[in-house]
């Protein structure tokens, strides 16, 4: 909720809390809110340097069921001068005004990069590093962009102002959706994991542990071919119904199914055209 540090921050920055609490931009998303398959089965790329606007970072990945799905009501999860080290150590950043915050945090962007996961277009989530900074930056962004038309020059300027350097991880949709299809298969238990080399770098291939202690190491094309075999020989209607339901819900999953399994899309979609 709102402790004294947070109330002080809100007052200093002339934030109209009542309006901001009701604003859509104040609402936080989790991975499961955006895409439940990615939330439970997601594979991500290695981190790469990128610039991302705080406008596109819509919540935290690693807090899946946030107590309060509002950025302002989440402040005390991170800021409390009377709390333990985790809650008190970053209190200083509440003293920056909206004009000072980016410059004030510039050193930290380099020394302790913020890690972001790109779940879908325009919907990124903070990963393990940068939760405190994101909370402050997002609240400033929400306050400054309040009431602006997203197509307006003023809104674009605010987006630009709150564009920060991050370490970005992108969803590997093929591995994610393959993982989902294999892990939830009704007939067998196939466990999938990433292969890495002697330097602990991903090779891009996955290792499948099959029944009877067999192992397969596959690249993406081989993984798709393997999946196709599995799906072609699967009869369970509940399984296909679940696939169908998720295809209706998530564009990227529907595209994955349609592009990679065109011959059996009709079977998967239950004969319905899309």
């Amino acid at each position: 909720m709102l402790n004294d540090d947070v109330l002080d921050f809100i007052k200093k920055n002339n934030m109209d809390l009542k309006k901001l609490l009701q604003n859509d931009s104040s609402q936080l998303s989790t991975t499961n809110d955006i895409n439940r398959i990615i939330g439970n089965y997601g594979y991500f790329s290695e981190e790469e340097d990128a610039f991302v606007s705080v406008a596109d970072i819509v919540g935290y990945n690693c807090i899946q069921d946030q107590q309060n799905k509002n950025i302002f009501l989440n402040f005390d999860n991170f800021f409390d001068s009377q709390g333990d080290g985790y809650h008190s150590r970053s209190i200083g950043m509440l003293n920056y005004s909206s004009e000072e915050i980016i410059e004030g945090l510039r050193y930290s962007f380099k020394e302790e990069p913020i890690v972001v996961e790109a779940i879908t277009e325009g919907k990124h989530l903070i990963s393990t590093n940068g939760l405190h900074r994101y909370t402050v930056l997002r609240s400033h962004f929400v306050n400054e962009s309040y009431g602006l038309d997203e197509d307006s020059i003023e809104y674009k300027k605010v987006r630009e102002k709150y564009t920060i350097p991050v370490k970005l991880k992108k969803v590997d949709l093929i591995k994610t959706y393959a993982n989902f299809l294999l892990s939830t298969h009704p007939d067998f238990e196939i466990f999938m994991s990433s292969e890495f080399d002697n330097n602990y770098r991903y090779t891009g291939r996955v290792i499948l542990e099959l029944p009877n202690n067999k192992r397969l190491t596959l690249d993406d094309d081989e993984l798709i071919r393997f999946l196709k075999q599995i799906l072609t020989n699967t009869k369970c209607s509940d399984y296909f119904e679940r696939i169908n339901n998720y295809s209706a819900k998530y564009d990227s999953f529907r595209t994955f199914i349609a592009e990679n399994f065109p011959d059996i899309t009709r079977q998967i979609m239950g004969g319905k055209s899309r």
């Binding site: 939330g39 594979y43 991500f44 890690v115 393990t128 892990s183 466990f191 994991s193 602990y200």
Partner: peptide
């Protein structure tokens, strides 16, 4: 995956994710 404390410690120790199920 929801255990932020462990996740931060493990990634800070150069841990690399290799699998995720449910």
């Amino acid at each position: 995956n929801d255990n932020i404390v462990i996740k931060k410690i493990v990634t800070g120790a150069r841990g690399i994710p290799v699998s995720v199920v449910n």
